[in-house]
Design a protein around this nucleic acid. Structure first.
Ligand SMILES: [Mn+2]
Ligand SMILES: [Mn+2]
Length: 636
DNA sequence: GATCTTG
DNA sequence: CAAGATCAACGCGCA
DNA sequence: TGCGCG
């Protein structure tokens, strides 16, 4: 299959490979797997959490492509046809290039949502009673909002909603978590969903969204039923279980109440079609008169407690989960609430310590910045030997470089690589975003990388032309010089990319295939710098010493030495203003618009959300090599 | 910030 | 056990 | 060889 856009192959934790499309803002995804909450034992004590009613229905995602609205379950099944009226109501919102996230319910007595009422409505084809509570907008009107804080996504979501009976906004509940939960339970609600106010939208189970339940409730697979007794018709009790990690179904108990007569009839009919002679449970209960069934139906069950063996006590049927594949039904164990001061599982100490005091940017904010831009930053940092700039006393205090691991010097979770035939120590690199966050925990503010990637650190895979202007050089002159640099590189046949440095200069970066050694590549860049000085001796110097000749740009080719580094794309700078090195499109380089100080730790996540397209989208697919012809053109 | 040393 | 000490880069070009 | 530099 030919893939459009740029793609990236990454290895997941479970060692599987996943093909991910790189930031392509232009296209609306065909499906957005929903963000799922983690069941917790108690409300978190600290942190900025907002709470919503835990609606008792089906999770539903709505895709608006401009022409039509389609509705999908959490596993991606298209339910638009079952919800035709709702789809029509959503159509009135006139949205395009949008994904909304919410829960469909049917409101019963006292305005409470009722899972059984929803099932009854579906059964009877009464989708007019369905109400869709919307609580998130991963994509809205062509913008990818997933990286914005939850509160901002909800604010924008609320703005596009109209007053409607069937499409409603899931409002935040005010008050302290414990009290709100108590109130919710008194009102007969299922529980609460808590969300970290600044959490980003990530598909799958996340710790930044939590579930707090009033009663114990869980999904189970139906694996059989017992014969009815007395006047009961159909069956006596359902035998239910859950799958373990190995895919074996374990019996966890019987569910004998919670059905009215109609439900009993319809369930009996469906179970009859699934009869089989042998049990699917690995530990079937020794009981007489049991009819086994193929384990495909999923029941939501409320119960008072579990025995020591995990068997349900006082279990009551709540409804069928038509939206869940049985294979996905596992034991759900409540975990302690997440630590507010952990980012990607890395505990941040002294979270409120100010790194940029004038801007009020704290250590925890810097860690969250790294998390927020991780998808963009990591590809430029991952597996490259790293020089950290660590600033224990804040970005405006005294900072120092670190490029080795040493005992007594904060290892974090960084890895190391050695240079062949070198007496120097091993060099650090980050293999994951967690490692980058751990560096922040250890005081790192800036990330500088080599132009080569582990393990092949003898052959550079990028060229960085570092343009360092004299203090007094006007912006428009730097723009001219930068465009000349681009013209020269493109004249040679090298596609190149532009970024700010977070300081006075600019970087022009060209990815290359890792074929030549450092000496050859540096020599090439030395010739490029020399060529610039030949073309415009009044504008460029290639000499490090006495560079402060007025009104010149130092074409610093020395970033392309082995063991030299350049500040990484999306790295913050340890300077007043919390500037960031930001990739730009060439269109953004304008004499009238100096963007060097436009971007900082506070506004870069927003820029990335609003971009229609990654300005460096082609960086990873450029795949260019240094040719003999290029060398010749440079007089090498 | 983390670790090792010292009192 | 708590307080205190210690450590956290380096290679290049050129005068 | 030492110094300035990024
Ligand atoms: Mn520079
Ligand atoms: Mn430089």
């Amino acid at each position: 299959m030919k893939l459009r856009g740029s793609w990236i192959l990454t290895r997941m934790r479970n060692d599987e490979w996943l093909l991910i499309k790189r930031h392509d803002r232009a296209e609306l995804p065909q499906f957005v797997a929903p963000m799922l909450a983690t069941l917790v034992t108690e409300p978190p004590r600290h942190g900025d959490w907002v709470y919503e009613v835990k609606h008792d229905g089906y999770r539903m995602l709505a895709r608006f492509d401009g022409a039509q609205v389609r509705l999908f379950t959490r596993s991606g099944k298209d339910w638009t046809d079952k919800l035709a009226r709702l789809a029509a109501a959503l159509g009135k919102l006139k949205l395009k290039d949008t994904w909304l996230d919410g829960e469909i319910v049917v409101l019963g007595a006292h305005g409470r949502s009722s899972f059984q009422a929803l099932q009854n409505a579906f059964e009877a084809g009464r989708d007019a009673e369905v109400v869709y509570f919307l609580f998130d907008a991963p994509f809205l009107s062509g913008q990818d909002l997933r990286r914005l804080p939850l509160t901002e996504r909800k604010r924008r979501l609320q703005k596009v909603l109209r007053k409607s009976k069937s499409v409603r906004f899931s409002a935040d509940l005010k008050g302290e978590a414990g009290e709100v939960l108590e109130q919710a339970c008194k009102l007969g609600l299922e529980g609460l969903i808590g969300k970290q106010a600044n959490s980003v939208y990530v598909s799958g189970r996340a710790k930044s969204w939590i579930k707090l339940k009033c009663r114990q409730r869980q999904d189970f697979v139906i694996g059989g039923y017992t014969a009815p007794g007395g006047s009961r018709q159909g069956f006596g009790a359902l035998l239910v279980g859950v799958y373990d990690q190995q895919g074996r179904l374990h019996f966890t108990g019987k569910v004998g109440t919670g059905f009215d007569e109609a439900l009993l009839r319809s369930l009996t009919r469906r179970l009859a079609a699934l009869k089989k002679p042998e049990p699917s449970f690995v530990n079937p209960p020794k009981e007489k008169g049991v009819q086994w069934v193929r384990p495909t139906l999923v029941a939501e069950v409320a119960y008072a407690e579990r025995t020591d063996e995990g068997i349900l006590r006082q279990a009551a049927f709540m409804g069928l989960r038509e939206d869940l594949p049985a294979k996905n039904v596992h034991e759900e164990r409540a975990v302690p609430p997440p630590d507010e001061n952990a980012v990607l599982g890395v505990k941040i100490s002294h979270p409120d310590r100010l790194i940029w005091p004038k801007l009020g940017i704290r250590k925890i904010d810097l860690a969250r910045y790294v998390e927020a831009v991780g998808e963009w930053l990591l590809p430029h940092v991952k597996n490259r030997p790293l020089s950290l700039v660590r600033c224990p006393d804040g970005a405006e205090g005294e900072c120092f470089y670190q490029r080795h691991l040493m005992t007594g010097a904060s290892p974090g979770s960084l890895q190391t690589v050695r240079r062949e035939r070198s007496s120097k120590g091993a060099y650090i690199y980050a293999a994951s975003l967690e490692a980058v966050v751990s560096a922040v925990q250890n005081g790192a503010v800036e990330f500088h990388t080599w132009g080569a990637t582990v393990p092949d650190i003898k052959r550079p895979d990028r060229i960085t032309m570092d343009l360092d202007p004299d203090e007094a050089l006007p912006w428009r002159t730097l723009v001219e010089g930068t465009l000349l640099t681009r013209a020269l590189l493109e004249g040679l046949g090298l596609k190149c990319f532009l970024k700010t440095t977070g300081g006075k200069g600019l970087h022009v970066v060209a990815p290359i295939e890792p074929e030549l050694g450092w000496d050859e590549v540096k020599e090439l860049t030395r010739h490029i710098a020399h060529m610039l000085t030949k073309a415009r001796p009044d504008r460029f110097t290639a000499k490090l010493a006495k560079q402060r000749r007025p009104n010149k740009i130092f074409a610093d080719y020395l970033r392309n030495s082995e063991t030299a580094s350049a500040v990484a794309a999306y790295s913050p700078r340890a300077r007043p203003g919390a500037g960031v090195s930001v990739p730009l499109s060439w269109d953004e380089l304008e004499p009238k618009n100096d963007l060097r100080t436009a971007f900082n730790v506070q506004n870069v996540p927003e820029r990335l959300s609003e971009l229609k397209e990654d300005p460096w989208a082609d960086y990873w697919t450029t795949g260019q090599r240094i040719t003999a012809k290029m060398k010749q053109a440079l007089g090498m």
